[in-house]
Design a protein around this nucleic acid. Sequence first.
DNA 1: CATGAATGAGCTTTCATTCAT
DNA 2: CATGAATGAAAGCTCATTCAT
Lengths: 210, 210, 210, 210
Amino acid sequence: MARNNGTDLRRAILDVSRRLLVEQGYDQLSMRKIASQVGCTATSIYLHFRNKDDLMHTLIDEGMEMLYANLSASAEGTTDPMERLERLGRAYLDFGIGNPEYYEVMFLLHPKHMERYPAEKYRSARRNLQIFAETLGQAHAAAVHKQADFSPQIAATLVWSTLHGLVSILIAQRVDVSVDREALYAATVARLSSYASNIAGRSSHPEGAR
Amino acid sequence: MARNNGTDLRRAILDVSRRLLVEQGYDQLSMRKIASQVGCTATSIYLHFRNKDDLMHTLIDEGMEMLYANLSASAEGTTDPMERLERLGRAYLDFGIGNPEYYEVMFLLHPKHMERYPAEKYRSARRNLQIFAETLGQAHAAAVHKQADFSPQIAATLVWSTLHGLVSILIAQRVDVSVDREALYAATVARLSSYASNIAGRSSHPEGAR
Amino acid sequence: MARNNGTDLRRAILDVSRRLLVEQGYDQLSMRKIASQVGCTATSIYLHFRNKDDLMHTLIDEGMEMLYANLSASAEGTTDPMERLERLGRAYLDFGIGNPEYYEVMFLLHPKHMERYPAEKYRSARRNLQIFAETLGQAHAAAVHKQADFSPQIAATLVWSTLHGLVSILIAQRVDVSVDREALYAATVARLSSYASNIAGRSSHPEGAR
Amino acid sequence: MARNNGTDLRRAILDVSRRLLVEQGYDQLSMRKIASQVGCTATSIYLHFRNKDDLMHTLIDEGMEMLYANLSASAEGTTDPMERLERLGRAYLDFGIGNPEYYEVMFLLHPKHMERYPAEKYRSARRNLQIFAETLGQAHAAAVHKQADFSPQIAATLVWSTLHGLVSILIAQRVDVSVDREALYAATVARLSSYASNIAGRSSHPEGAR
DNA sequence: CATGAATGAGCTTTCATTCAT
DNA sequence: CATGAATGAAAGCTCATTCAT
C-alpha cells in the first residue's frame, strides 16, 4: 500500500500480472483486475505501460529472460555436450510445465492476439534457441570430421520443436491420463542427442558401434 | 442475403468462423463478427448452433474427421510400416500447415477457453492417435523378438508430440524466416521411424547390434 | 405429439403455460419454452393467441375461474354466514398459497407489465369479491336492525385485503421462519367475522349476550 | 451532462430507478433505460453499483430507512398504546401509498427476481415490524393480567399483513374506483387495535376490565 | 505520481414476433 | 393447421482507454 516510488509500482504491476496470468490465464487478465490486485487504479498502469500490449510484451521479455536463466543454470558445470543437451532439454520442459500460463503467452498465443508486438521481439526466443544451437555445435565439433545433414540452426529448431511439442500437448491437456508423464519426458530428452548425431552425420554413433 | 436453405447458412457460418479464427484468433472471434461476415444476424447463428461453444465443437469435430480422412488416405496402398509411418507423418504436417484454422481450434486452444466442451470429445483425437499406434505396432511386429523401451501408446504420443511441435511453431509464426521449411519437414518425418525402433529395441538398427 | 385438432393444442398451450408459470415464475416464461414443452413451434402459439399478453390474459381468466370454483365449493353445504365466511377465507388462502406463481400473475403482477390487458378484465376479480360480499350481507341480515359502519362492498374489499395481505407476504417469503404459519392462518380467518360485525354495527357483540 | 461530482450521479441513478420502477415495472427496468434517463452511459452506473441487484438492494435499504423514520416520527409524542398503534398504521399506509416505487421493490418484488439479495437483508423489515410489536406489547402490558391468544410477534405480523394487504391492492390498482379509499383506510386502521386486544385477551373489551 | 469519473464499443444470449411456404 | 428461417431489439455486463484534476 505504501509504495516508495514509481519503479516499485512498475515492478508490482509486472509481478501481479505474471501471477494472474499463471493463475487465471490470458483472457482472464484485465487491467482492472491487475490494478485491483496491485492496489492501485487502472489508470496508474498507464503511467508505466503505454497500453495492455506493452505490458504483455514486457512480460514476455521477462519470461524469455527467466527461461534463459533457467537454461543457463541447468547447463552449468558440465562440459560434455550430450549431458548439457539433456539438461537443457529437461530445464526447458520443466519451465514450460511449471509455468503453463506463462508459457502460453510466450509461445502459444497467436500473434494475431498481440498484434502490435514487434515481430522481432518474438525472436528474443532466438537467444534461447541459440543456447541449444551452441551445445549442438559442440557435439558436432566433438564428433569431428563428418558432414552435417543440416545446420545447427535447423537442428536447434528441431530440438525446440520437439520440446515444444511435448510441452504444449501437456499444457493443453490433450494427453490421455493413462500415459506416464515421466516416460514421455525421459524419452523426449533422450532423443535430443540424436539431433546432434545428425549434425555430425551418422559418425557419432560410429566408432564404438563399429 | 438470398439464401437457398438453412443448410447453406450453417455451412457458411462454419466456414466464416474458421476463416475468422485463423485471421483474428479465438478471442477476437465473436458471434457478431461471424454474422456480419456471413451476412446474417447474430441471432440466426443460434438457429443452427446452441451457443458459441457448440459452434466451436462442431468445428473441432469437422477438423478431426478431416484429419482422420487425410491420415487414412495417406497410408492406403502401403504395407511397409516404415513407409506408412512417414506418409502418416507427412499427412499430419500437411493437414496442420494447410488448415491452420482447423488446427488451431483442434489442438492449440486451451480447454480453459472451451470449458463446456465435453472432455471426452477432445479424445476424438484418440482415433487419430490410434492410426499411428497401429502402424508403430506393425513396425514392432516386423522387427520381432525384441523388448520394447516403451509401449506403442507412448510411442504414438511421442510421434504426435513431435509432429505437433513442428506444426505449432510454424502456425504461430515463431520460426525464423531464414530456416528452410522443407528441411524441418524432412528431418522431422525422417525421425519418426526411430520411435518404431525404440519400441522394437535397438535391434531395428540391425546390422551393428547383431 | 399426435394431436386431434386445434382446440387440443390451445388447451395444451394453456396447461403447459400454467404449469411453467407455477413451476418457474412469470419472467421465466417465454413463448419458446412453452412451445418446446407443448411439442409445437413458437409460431403455432400465435395461431391460437394473438400474442403473449393474450395468452396471459386467458390464463388469468382461467385462474379467476378456478378461484371462483374453489370458493364456491368451499361454501357449499353451509348456511351459517359466519362459518361460510371462515370457509371462504380458508379456501382463498389455500388457493393463493397452493398456487403462488399463479396467484402472482393474477394479483401481484403490476398492471404495467400487462399493459394491454383491458382494465375491466382485472375486475373479473369482482365476482370473487362478490361471493364474500354476499356472505357478509347475509351475516348483516342475520344480526338485523343495526346500522352498518360501511357497505358490504367495502367490507368485502377489507376481507380481501386482509387475505391478500397474508397470502402475499407468505408468497414473497417475507415472514420470519420462526412464525407459526397455522397461527397466522387461524387468526386471520377468525378475524374475518369481525368485518361482518361491523357491517352490522356493534350489535353483533350481542348486547343481549351480555 | 455536466455534473458536479459522483455523489450526484449516484443520487440521480437511484431517483431515476425508483421512478422508472413505478412507471414501468421491475422487468421493464434496464440499466440502459436508467442510464438514458439519467443522461449517462450504462457503464457509468457500474461505477456506483456493482450490478443491477446492488442497485436494487440500495433502493430497498433506502426505503426501509425511510419507512422506519416515518414510523418513528409518527409515534412520537404519544404514550397511549392504542393511539400509537393507529398512528403507526396510518404512517405505514401513507408511506406505501405515497411511495409506491419504494414499496414495490421493498415488499412486492418476489425474491426470485432478486436472487442475489442476501436473505437477511429482507429482514431489515424486521426493525419496522419490531416497532409495531413493541407498541402491541405495551398495550398488552397496560391491559394486564390476561392471557394472550398469540405472541406479540404474531400480532405484529398480522398487523403488517393487514396493512400490506391494503397497500398492495391499492398499488396494483385492483380496487374498484367506486370504493372510497378513506373508508378503507379508516376501517383498516381502526381494526388494528383488536390485535392488541387479542394479545391481552378479551379483557381489553372494557366491560370485563371494569 | 496518481486518481475518480466517464466513455463507447463490444460481448453472448434471449426474446416476441413475422413471413413465406 | 403448422412450420423453419429469420429478424431487430434488447438485456446485463466487461473491457481498454482517456481526461480533468
